[in-house]
């Protein structure tokens, strides 16, 4: 009896949806699509929201095109592009020098900045301080010019390109880092630091700037003498930054090429900024 009702409900829903389908296909007929087909894009969770938004705008311009964005991680994006499972892969890093079998297309840049809780009086940390904190040699803020408070070191989980970039920059080995909290995605880092007065972490600069502006109790520390701002990432003076990259197996052509060209064009700079990344230089 329950099954019958479920089936009936399913039927009603399906009927409703085929009606919605009719409505959209009727709308399609009014325009003449030049490009058509379906594009599957998989990979980095950092890049996915941006590409999904670019995809929506592209679909509006070319009604015959459907762009499906799936998240996973940079490695999966690259693996899927390589195996042909996805037409385009997404990676939140530059391609490595040995990844010559695939083609990378940079669509935006992103900086990585150190954040601490807003209640923390420390205004800046030297590179040596940051290294000592992450190696567990310094465990109290009073040793680096702060108040008497235990340091909670926030680190990223193994395999994330943000961790790779951070560790490379400070010449750290991940197994030597003494972390108190290990996080996954970017926002978990911001939430962890905002909820813990003694925490220190590293996150994407654009999002941290936005969150701090919204009143989230975090602050960005300068790296050496360079302030951690989107502006400094854009003018390339900020040393800790990465490229958001679309990856294809071969030289892109047809639909993938059209999409990649669009994603690199000025037409999407507003979308890039909306997602708190840095557009390519004009």
């Amino acid at each position: 009896m329950i099954t019958m009702n479920v089936l009936r409900a399913l039927g009603i829903l399906m009927a409703g949806m085929s009606f919605a389908n009719l409505a959209t296909s009727a709308a399609d007929d009014t325009k003449q699509p030049t490009l058509a087909g379906k594009l599957t894009i998989t990979g980095s969770s950092t890049v996915a929201p941006l590409v999904a938004e670019i995809g929506k705008r592209f679909e509006q311009l070319h009604p015959g095109v459907r762009i499906d964005v799936q998240t996973g991680g940079s490695s999966r994006g690259i693996a899927d592009a390589r195996s042909g499972l996805a037409d385009i892969g997404m990676a939140s890093r530059d391609l490595k020098s040995d990844e010559t079998d695939i083609k990378g297309h940079v669509i935006a840049r992103d900086g990585i900045g150190m954040i601490v809780n807003a209640a923390n009086p420390v205004q800046s940390l030297t590179d040596a301080h940051i290294i000592d904190i992450y190696l567990g040699k310094v465990t109290n803020w009073k040793d680096v010019g702060g108040s008497d408070m235990a340091i909670s070191v926030v680190n990223k989980a193994e395999g994330r390109s943000t961790l790779e970039l951070f560790a490379q920059h400070y010449k750290l080995k991940n197994s030597d880092i003494k972390a108190s909290v290990i996080i996954g995605d970017n926002q978990q880092g911001i939430k962890t630091v905002s909820g813990n007065p003694g925490a220190i972490g590293y996150v994407s600069i654009g999002t941290a700037e936005f969150e701090a502006g919204q009143g989230t109790p975090i602050k960005l520390l300068p790296l050496g003498t360079v302030a951690a701002t989107v502006e400094n990432v854009q003018n390339a003076s900020f040393p800790l930054s990465r490229s958001l990259t679309l990856v294809t197996k071969d030289e892109a052509k047809d639909l993938p090429k059209a999409f990649i060209d669009f994603a690199r064009s000025k037409d999407v700079h507003d979308l890039v900024k909306e997602q708190f990344f840095v557009p390519l230089a004009e």
């Binding site: 950092t46 996954g184 926002q187 919204q214």
Partner: peptide, 20 residues
């Protein structure tokens, strides 16, 4: 069709989207 479920949406908004 691929379709995002509510729980996935909540997870993405809290863990991955600043201001979500």
């Amino acid at each position: 069709d691929s379709g995002r479920a509510l729980a996935v949406h909540i997870y993405d908004l809290t863990m991955n989207v600043a201001g979500g």
